[in-house]
């Protein structure tokens, strides 16, 4: 988590510097706004990862949180991890599903509605709703962790 958080915070810091220098050399608001957006794009997830990194270490200095115990480092972050260290459940992966293509078809029709007329939007939104319900129901039936 440490390198991930540094990577993302680094993005945020870089764009922060660029945004400030761009603003004070140009006073142009469009570009500055986009650069500030990029800054938060780096800082927000970066802070999240840093938070978890500190939690894993049993942090007491970050977010004022004192956790009970140090979880340690994830096996994928350790130089000396063996494959066995990763034993356990990696994640749960869904099998085949008809809903992604249904959802995309709905989106396709919905966007065509903007071009060819509102009546198509009815079709598009219906298909999207059906797909969303379908994909949610599928997740409920399936996954166990």
């Amino acid at each position: 988590m440490k390198i991930e958080s540094r990577f993302l915070i680094g993005i945020g810091v870089f764009f922060g510097i660029i945004a400030i220098s761009y603003w004070f050399t140009s006073y142009e608001d469009g570009g500055t706004l986009m650069l500030v957006g990029a800054t938060t794009l780096g800082l927000v997830p970066g802070a999240y990862y840093f938070f978890w990194h500190r939690r894993f270490q049993g942090s007491k200095y970050f977010f004022w949180g004192r956790t009970d115990r140090a979880v340690g480092t994830r096996p994928e972050d350790r130089d000396d991890a063996t494959i066995a260290d990763g034993a356990g459940v990696v994640s749960s992966f869904p099998g085949s599903s008809i809903w992604p293509i249904t959802l995309a078809a709905g989106a396709f029709v919905l966007l065509l509605a903007f071009v060819f007329g509102t009546w198509l939007a009815l079709v598009g939104v219906s298909v999207i709703l059906i797909a969303l319900i379908g994909v949610t129901a599928e997740s409920r039936r399936g996954g166990r962790y």
Binding site: P94, G95, R144
Partner: peptide, 17 residues
């Protein structure tokens, strides 16, 4: 319809069997 992935334990079964 989900696959639960269990990686290998050292010396045991192959990973993700």
């Amino acid at each position: 319809m989900t696959d639960v992935i269990v990686p290998q334990i050292a010396g045991g079964e192959p990973a993700y069997a």
